[in-house]
């Protein structure tokens, strides 16, 4: 534990934590995205998948793990952001331009993180803790999450907000995934360009997958 704390106190240790937690969350996102894709199969498959997840007692461990990862990622990133800000007390009067510039996405990673936090809270509030409908399949009554989803995604405002939030998430993970490998010490002239492509593909697939659902519902699933 002492060793862990000592490494964590350094900037590189801190970044490593942010990187590992970020990558772990990125893995979760893939699983989550794949799961909800069941919507395109059938409402029944979707609801049964959801039920299987929440009826497994391991869900509490998994949820606790996710919370720890998420909080650790956020807390360490905020702490580093504060340190980074203090490292340049007086800002430049003119911003860099051209190749030497830092992109807006890179400059606002912390803000993206906070927005994603807000989104996650809203998201959980809407779905996990939202209205509970029931549906019965083969005699078993389980939660009808599908109905809630269809309901919620009728609102243009909600779909719009969801779209924006996922776009932000997309930029965040596109930088994050490639960056995490670099932080963890993986950089090779041959493989790093590949990793960057993978990072981009990952962002496209995950965000595309997540967005596909509200867009589909909003456009083609009027009323339920």
């Amino acid at each position: 534990m002492e060793l862990f704390m000592r490494i964590m106190k350094s900037t590189i240790g801190g970044k490593t934590l942010v990187g590992i937690t970020g990558l772990s969350f990125a893995l979760f996102l893939v699983a989550h995205m794949a799961g909800i894709m069941l919507m395109f199969v059938s409402a029944e498959a979707y609801n049964k998948y959801g039920h299987a997840l929440i009826s497994n007692p391991a869900i509490y461990i998994a949820e606790a793990g996710l919370i720890v990862i998420f909080v650790a990622h956020l807390a360490k990133a905020i702490q580093l952001t504060i340190k980074n800000n203090q490292a340049r007390p007086q800002k430049y009067h003119v911003a860099a331009s051209g190749e030497k510039a830092t992109t807006a996405v890179q400059k606002t990673l912390w803000a993206q993180g906070l927005l994603i936090l807000v989104f996650v809270i809203l998201h959980l509030n809407t779905f996990k803790f939202g209205t509970i409908y029931y549906v019965t399949y083969d005699g078993e009554t389980i939660r009808d999450l599908h109905r809630l989803v269809i309901e919620v995604f009728q609102s243009p405002a909600y779909v719009g907000g969801y779209f924006v939030a996922l776009l932000i998430l997309g930029f965040h993970v596109k930088h994050g995934v490639a960056s995490a490998f670099q932080t963890l010490g993986v950089n090779h002239p041959k493989y790093t360009p590949m990793l960057k492509t993978i990072s981009l593909l990952y962002a496209l697939v995950v965000v595309g997958g997540f967005i596909a659902q509200p867009v589909y519902v909003f456009l083609f699933h009027k009323g339920s």
Binding site: N84, A87, A96, Q106, N187, H188
Partner: peptide, 29 residues
């Protein structure tokens, strides 16, 4: 009191000797 690395690559793009980001990965390792 230097800040942490966010892997933006602005350093390497600015470096008059074009030092590569590979070095940072090596240092982290």
């Amino acid at each position: 009191g230097f800040g942490a690395c966010t892997n933006t690559g602005a350093c390497s793009a600015t470096c008059p000797k074009e030092i590569s980001l590979e070095n940072i990965a090596r240092m982290n390792r």
